[in-house]
């Protein structure tokens, strides 16, 4: 069974995230962690806006916070978001990775070594190649890799880069993503390492 999903998104993210998060039910059993590239001085608009239109709780990630199901944690602007092995969140101001802070690779790679085959990685719209390496790491740890179908992305650079580098499990159009996350994924019609437990 999957415990967490990490999401990487850049340009065009607001629309994509709104569509996906608003589909999830209040008791969604998976924790979601998101890196959305944005300006360092961004305020709380993103998490407050997404929280309003979602049944699940959407909030800015705080250091030391325990990761809970049915919660969505957004990386604060200007900080890398990482997952500790005890399933708590941490932040850093280490140098940018792929010119980005927060960086998708940083989140994905730390989450992969924590959740291993209980993790889903999702790459959405964006004009960057950040996240591809991280998605690859998730696969190496036995996790599940999903990419938004490039033709449904506002900017297709990021999904294309991920598909190019990684042997992804699923490529899904934006409009079908929400449904996939609440049905296919939870009904374990998805076959991966997640079902053969350690």
């Amino acid at each position: 069974m999957f415990e967490a999903m990490v999401v990487g998104v850049s340009a065009g993210g607001l629309h994509a995230l709104s569509g996906i998060l608003s589909c999830l039910p209040l008791n969604y059993p998976i924790a979601i962690l998101i890196v959305q590239h944005r300006h360092r001085d961004s305020d709380h608009f993103l998490d407050e806006y997404l929280n309003k239109l979602s049944a699940v709780r959407v909030k800015e990630a705080e250091p030391g916070e325990a990761i809970l199901p049915a919660h969505v944690y957004i990386a604060p602007a200007g900080y890398h978001l990482l997952v500790e092995r005890d399933k708590t969140l941490s932040l850093s101001i280490d140098p940018p990775v792929n010119f980005s802070i927060p960086s998708i690779d940083v989140l994905f790679q730390s989450a992969a070594s924590c959740y291993k085959n209980h993790l889903i990685g999702l790459i959405l719209t964006g004009a960057s190649s950040d996240g591809s390496q991280g998605l690859k790491t998730i696969k190496e740890y036995g996790g599940y890799a999903i990419v938004q179908a490039p033709q449904t992305a506002e900017v297709d650079v990021m999904p294309k880069a991920a598909i190019e580098l990684v042997d992804v499990d699923k490529i899904i159009p934006l409009e079908a993503l929400g449904q996939f996350l609440i049905q296919d994924l939870l009904n374990s019609t998805v076959v991966n390492g997640g079902e053969t437990d350690e």
Partner: peptide
């Protein structure tokens, strides 16, 4: 130290 950043470094 928080291990995640440490591990990256």
């Amino acid at each position: 130290y928080s291990k995640a950043s440490l591990e990256r470094r």
